[in-house]
């Protein structure tokens, strides 16, 4: 465990609470992609199966896994019931079947081992790397976002971005290297690059988030 990893997980946790706070404070889920939230739930459910047999290996990991699964399920529940009126299926239309299919293909091609758990784990890693696309696509369609939504996306992007120095740290200092997670994590972070640029040049200067 190193500082980058802790900061990354904290950033992930903060992103989930910013999202819940955004819905509570605006009484709406406008601008949030339900598809991305569903993909994230799929990611956590296929990656954290080992919670059943490694619960005591690390209470930190096990509790974070539970929090991620439960909070994402709760977010989806809120979006489909309490804040359903703000759901706009007309703009949340990114073809998630291609993302799930692509991740499934990569999971079969590049698992560490051909066991159910390792293939599902690999699937979840590849799926997470593209799970934000429906959300970014929706941002593209609306051309703008509430400031609190951009903070949510920044924290979410920063989580896996911080895992990259964590992987470098572990590679150089512990000789531990996880190629699947690293490649997918770099792809995931690159997908945020234009968002990060706009966030840095606009939102951090107090302007509204608008696409050029």
């Amino acid at each position: 465990m190193n500082l980058f990893r802790i900061l990354g997980d904290l950033s992930h946790l903060v992103s989930i609470f910013i999202l819940l706070q955004k819905m509570r404070s605006t009484r709406s889920c406008a601008g949030i992609s339900l598809r991305t939230q569903i993909l994230y739930l799929m990611v956590y459910c296929t990656r954290y199966l080992d919670i059943f047999w490694t619960f005591n290996a690390s209470l930190y990991n096990s509790s974070m896994k539970l929090v991620f699964i439960l909070s994402t399920a709760y977010t989806i529940y809120l979006m489909r019931t309490v804040y359903k009126t703000a759901l706009d299926p007309q703009i949340d239309t990114f073809a998630t079947y291609y993302l799930v299919g692509g991740a499934g293909l990569l999971a079969v091609l590049f698992p560490y081992k051909y066991t159910v758990y390792e293939v599902l784990w690999s699937f979840s890693i590849w799926l997470e790397s593209v799970a934000i696309l429906p959300q970014l696509f929706m941002l593209q369609r609306t051309g703008e976002a509430e400031t609190i939504t951009t903070h949510y996306l920044f924290a979410l992007g920063a989580y896996r971005a911080l895992y990259i120095p964590n992987w470098l740290y572990r590679w150089f200092l512990e000789g531990h290297f996880d190629p699947i997670a690293t490649v997918a994590g770099i792809i995931q972070t690159l997908l945020y690059s234009d968002f990060f640029y706009i966030y840095y040049t606009k939102v951090l200067k107090g302007k509204k988030f608008e696409l050029p």
Binding site: K65, H176, P179
Partner: peptide, 10 residues
């Protein structure tokens, strides 16, 4: 190689 199978990250 075996070591990578230890999933100690989220």
């Amino acid at each position: 190689y075996e070591e990578v199978l230890v999933k100690d990250e989220l």
